Computed example of a mutant assay.
Amino acid sequence: MSTVADVDHHSPAIGAFPPVVLIAHAAASTSAIRLGSGGVLAPNHAPITLAEQFGTLAALHPDRIDLGIGRDPGTFDEATARELRRGAGPATDAQYHDDVAAILSFLVDEVARGPLPEPWLLCSSTAGAALAARLGLPSAVAHHIRPDNTFTVLERYRAAFIPSRWCEQPRVVVCVEAIWAETEQEATWRAGPMDVVKAGLLKGLSEIPFPTPADAATHPFTAEERQALAGFRAQQACGTPEAVVRRLAQLAADTGADELMLTTPVYDLDARVRSYDLIKKH
């Protein structure tokens, strides 16, 4: 299956990308590929609004729309997060659980006019895995964010899964950072800008502009940062096509994933397209 998923991010460093707008545009420009949110962040939206928006998309583009739901505010900036929630603070566990349940209820009881979007729950913790299992939802596991949690999350989800109208048995997408290039050196070069951003996050700097590969190549990483970045990259898929294919196959086998979702955070659009072309060929 081929799916394009858009993310609900709000950042001065990278911009804002409302998934429902991007999905509508992509759906109108294509005819077969699946499209979805990866994900839309429930605390930032009224549940009925999400149900109406994605229900409408599914009615206009039957059997092509996925509704990936997550919890993160989509920004590290506290003021932006409060604006998104109209002054409210971070959602509690109970509020988030209620929001997800309300979205599903509105889809069925208020919105349904034909094919519904397929709901997924984004998970990076055992709490998210437990909620996805209890609601009987497919799970998208954020290996590209918290790879050390992946196997614990999967174990919790599969052990506690309850079949539902949405899903009869556990279904898993594992999200992986994947950067392909003709050589190992070029792949490392392309990965450099995201390394700078990750190093900033390690120091609590959340809004670092995405640098060029040339600027990233001269960034003064500390020894501790280099060690942390190397450990993270070893759990993702970065390198030549052959190396990345082996890594993705290993990850799919180790996790038992039904699908892999790939994110390629490189600076140059042509390089990103080239990376996906290499993926398609292999």
Score class of each variant (00 low, 15 high):
159 A>I: 02
201 L>D: 08
72 D>F: 15
36 G>P: 10
36 G>F: 03
19 P>F: 05
147 P>Q: 00
25 H>M: 09
199 A>H: 03
172 V>H: 01
169 Q>N: 12
217 A>G: 03
168 E>V: 06
62 P>T: 03
118 E>M: 06
81 A>G: 13
159 A>E: 11
20 V>S: 14
43 P>W: 09
98 D>N: 08
52 E>D: 05
233 R>S: 10
88 A>Y: 02
127 A>G: 05
13 A>Y: 09
61 H>F: 15
114 G>F: 10
66 D>F: 14
271 A>R: 03
39 G>E: 08
127 A>W: 11
281 K>V: 12
221 F>N: 01
195 D>A: 03
14 I>N: 00
269 L>F: 14
121 L>C: 12
277 D>R: 13
214 A>M: 05
160 A>C: 06
274 R>S: 06
223 A>F: 08
28 A>S: 11
165 R>A: 14
205 L>H: 10
233 R>Y: 14
1 M>C: 01
108 V>Q: 15
211 P>S: 04
187 A>Q: 05
253 A>Y: 07
193 P>L: 01
203 K>G: 07
186 E>L: 10
8 D>L: 13
26 A>F: 11
163 P>N: 05
222 T>E: 05
124 S>E: 03
189 W>C: 02
150 T>C: 09
173 V>N: 04
18 P>I: 05
272 R>Y: 15
162 I>R: 15
51 A>N: 04
11 S>R: 06
24 A>Q: 05
27 A>M: 05
152 T>W: 02
1 M>A: 02
220 P>W: 14
111 V>F: 13
246 R>M: 14
83 E>R: 15
112 A>R: 15
39 G>N: 11
5 A>S: 01
107 L>Y: 11
112 A>M: 12
269 L>M: 08
80 T>K: 07
98 D>G: 13
197 V>R: 02
137 L>I: 07
109 D>P: 00
136 G>H: 05
28 A>Q: 03
